[in-house]
Design a protein around this nucleic acid. Structure first.
Lengths: 247, 247
DNA sequence: TCAAAAGTGTTGTACCTACACCCATGA
DNA sequence: TCATGGGTGTAGGTACAACACTTTTGA
């Protein structure tokens, strides 16, 4: 029986997902082929180990601090982002994942709305990356993001978390775009509308969104108290050949 | 910003599930109404906090020890059970979940086959309980078991973990009994058979189980390398009104 | 030959995909 | 008036629940 580990340090990290409209970073021009995509913010490590590499935002657990509070706090301190959805993902604790000392990281994942990212810290050491095109990250963070992506895609299928990407009210087309972007599929607008409407997950606001160059779409609001993340009653209408089971 | 927590101790605990044939504990006689049920081993706490209460088996993380290794080791030490399926469940770390010191517990859940429980330690301080009828446990362990039960029931629906409850080969009726016991539903034998057979998750062994008082059922073996826990291609045929989404 | 569970056949229904078509607006 | 996406209608197909029925053994 090994001696007890007393020198372990506990940290929290967070994988933050946001939807960015079809723009390439650094303000490049938009083209017609630009599609909305999934972005995650990373912070540059300023000290060893992994100095100079990009890493998930995070930090040490505070004394007497709950795990989810630590995740929210370190996230806000490093990136200025305050997510509306935050959930524990997994705890990574392999003995050699950090070279010098034993670090166990409780990793969270978060979803933010576009508005919530505007308060983000403007710092060259904080940068947003396309979730499907990341550089080599510090530690085991590439694997962590991969795992979080899988969880996001899975959970989208049986819960209401898609709402967390959107504002107070939204159109069904906007909701559909969340699914299409995250799952990387094309959904039939007619069938998606019917499925979502029949689920009872949305209620009409009576308003419409104007300013488009076509028929103004109705605005909806999530039904029930804003319990994003809770069970959702509808199955996403995705192409049958993609409806395989998650791991 | 709170000072960093350096006095935190890391522990692992495990919720172990096993199927017990329709017997009540303490060797009570079997009646026709006895059904297979879900059982969990617990250990009695021999010191404060929570002395005398029943608790999940577990222990401290060893120096240089991976989290899953710690879970398997402490499990074996306290109960003598070596599960064939072990997966991380959740990390519980509320500051006040243990009175004296700050303890963060990485909780695992495990499935064992009947044979694997025979090596279990025979000790008055280790006892098996019906998963749906537990006493008041130490710490937040009642909530943890509840959470694990939900995860087990959910995961049964989209993976192959049911096999982990069974031996090398089994009949389709035995597999169905796993689903019926864990999900607490009745499944149509004919439809269950077709669904499972069509999924390709099982292959016939060519053998049959004899000794029954009826037509001898075919024996099957899981298809593919024993990757229990990996994605399963079939949906469990359960009653529609029960096929609600998980959380 | 009887009981009991294994295993097969069949039918109705609910849902879902695909796609045609109408609607309401901005330009 | 045209282009564009919002929104509705509908036919065909697939999957599955329900249940009748046949099969094969032990007693």
């Amino acid at each position: 029986m090994p001696r007890h580990e007393r020198d372990v340090r506990l940290a929290t990290s967070t994988v933050i997902f946001a939807l960015e409209p079809g723009v390439t970073p650094e303000g490049a021009e938009r083209s017609a082929s630009d599609r909305t995509s999934l972005w995650i913010p990373l912070v540059r490590r300023l000290r060893e180990p992994g100095e100079g590499r990009w890493a998930l935002p995070g930090g040490w657990l505070g004394a007497g601090e709950a795990l989810d509070r630590a995740a929210a706090r370190t996230l806000e301190e490093t990136t200025g982002v305050t997510p509306r959805y935050l959930e524990q993902l997994y705890t990574f604790g392999d003995p050699d994942r950090s070279p010098d000392e034993r670090v166990v990281s409780v990793v969270y994942w978060a979803l933010v709305r576009p508005e919530e990212t505007t308060g983000a810290i403007d710092d060259p050491n904080v940068r947003w990356f396309d979730a499907d095109d990341l550089p080599d990250l510090a530690f085991d963070h590439n694997a962590i993001v991969e795992y979080a992506l899988g969880r996001l895609r899975t959970k989208l299928g049986y819960s209401q978390i898609a709402h967390a990407f959107l504002g107070e009210t939204f159109t069904i087309a906007e909701l559909r775009e969340v699914y299409e972007t995250v799952l990387r599929v094309h959904l039939d607008p007619a069938n998606f509308r019917r499925t979502v409407e029949a689920s009872g997950a949305l209620v009409e606001t009576g308003e419409v969104r104007t300013g488009t160059r076509h028929r103004p779409p109705k605005l909806y609001r999530p039904a029930g108290p804003t319990d994003v993340g809770s069970a959702g009653p509808f199955r996403v209408p995705i192409a049958p050949h993609l409806r395989k089971s998650p791991s």
